[in-house]
Design a protein around this nucleic acid. Structure first.
Lengths: 244, 244
DNA sequence: GACATTTTTTGACGGTTCGTCATATTATTG
DNA sequence: CAATAATATGACGAACCGTCAAAAAATGTC
């Protein structure tokens, strides 16, 4: 049996309800349409009750963000356990990130919103800490693969000092690409290719630069992409294919 | 003589005054402290007058952003005319970007604010177009160097199809790195090196991956960084050195 | 310089949203 | 079942945005 009282379970349920209502609102009508009054009306509780769950509008949005990051961590963990070379597993993380963004662009928008200082200024210490600890998990997963690559010789030992730089390089490249993709800058009209495709190319070039074995020139990258993405997302990936 | 009437010149002056007051406010107390009433009070004009200049708070901030992007374009143009190889000139753009961020971190914050959808939703079509045309200038400068590299053989001809991908790769890597740097994520505590340093390393590795000649292994990268940064910023760079 | 017309400036006002708190309602305990 | 504790409510104050009718200043005309 649950160790929680009926009341406590009720409250937990309601919290989920609020989050889901807020997410829907955000997705369908954007950040400025999301108001605490509207959330209250939608879930049919009073505003005060909403504030019992979340200290501010920004905290509510940050909670949504934490949920997204958790989903992303799931993907990364699947990538971590992908049966393949260290390079394939590291690539899998990049692919996971990039496809998650493609499959759930609105989630990425939430991530971006929370990074913004105007919003961040108002998030409580508490929520920020929660967020940060999730981000730390991601850092841990990615850097451990780099370390393993060095240990097994796929990546030269002289890069031992660059572990954090390599992690940061991929992170910034992916993060930057996806942020650019979703701010309304019309990349396509500016003559750019699809972002997922460019990212895959660039990530390979970058890792080749570090001589992370096996080099992309020695394999069929299209096929690898296909294989990893199927392994990571399975069902979901089909939805994406139809869309493209 | 000026072709503008006295009144028109007065209005232009006032616009600058408003912008500068707004920037100061933003820098000193953050986005949420910046209000139209406060701006009005500071410049000693009524709120209605402020609204004669800027259609909304977001348009005002976007105007500040345009000013920053213009400054950045200046830096990029200096980089473009740096006397050196195509690779050096391309690197100079990256260094310019990264040092501009270091020298004017608060300007970068404005850039980030405007990319955020919550803010962007409210910017007028007109201002967005102004912004976009500036961004297009940057794209043009950078891609033309890549093209020149291909034409002169520093970059293999088979990369002709990848010009936009190369531009995007560097752009996203730098943009991502700087955005991560300035959102309050404590990179240093997470074990990362200084961002400017990591970026320089990663950009070199990335361009090496494309075999853009001359490769970084054949030169003294520290010295090159030094040379380019002095050429680009001259006086300003000294300020930075003191700070570090 | 006096008057008419256009342009610019002003700040009081209406509307929206946030977050609070005294009060009402519900749950729990003795 | 009464007393006490926990939770829910929505009216309210405060902050901010953007508007607009009226006032003030600038410009044009004779």
């Amino acid at each position: 049996m649950s160790s929680l009282t009926r009341k406590q379970r009720e409250i937990n349920e309601r919290e989920k309800l609020i989050l889901s209502a807020a997410q829907t609102m955000l997705h369908q009508h954007g950040y400025n349409y999301l108001t605490m009054d509207r959330v209250a009306e939608t879930v049919e509780y009073s505003k005060g009750t909403i504030y019992n769950h979340f200290a501010s509008k920004e905290d509510l949005v940050c909670s949504l963000c934490c949920r997204c990051v958790s989903n992303l961590i799931d993907v990364f963990e699947r990538a971590y356990h992908y049966p393949g070379t260290t390079r394939e597993r590291y690539s899998a993380i990049g692919i996971g990130y990039s496809l998650y963004h493609q499959l759930h662009p609105l989630d990425s928008q939430i991530l971006q919103t929370v990074k913004n200082n105007a919003v961040r200024e108002k998030i409580s210490e508490y929520k920020l800490a929660e967020m940060e600890s999730l981000e730390q998990k991601i850092t841990k997963i990615t850097s451990s693969i780099v370390q393993q690559a060095i240990d097994c010789g796929d990546l030269d030992k002289r890069h031992q000092d660059n572990v954090s730089t390599i992690v940061f390089g991929c992170w910034s490249m992916h993060y930057g690409a996806l942020m650019l993709d979703q701010s309304d800058i019309p990349l396509y009209e500016l003559g750019f290719n699809p972002v997922v495709k460019m990212l895959w190319k660039n990530a390979n070039i970058y890792l080749d630069g570090y001589q992370w074995q096996p080099l992309s020139s020695s394999i069929d990258t299209d096929q690898l992409f296909e294989k990893i993405s199927t392994a990571l997302f399975d069902g979901e990936i089909n939805m994406l294919k139809q869309a493209v």
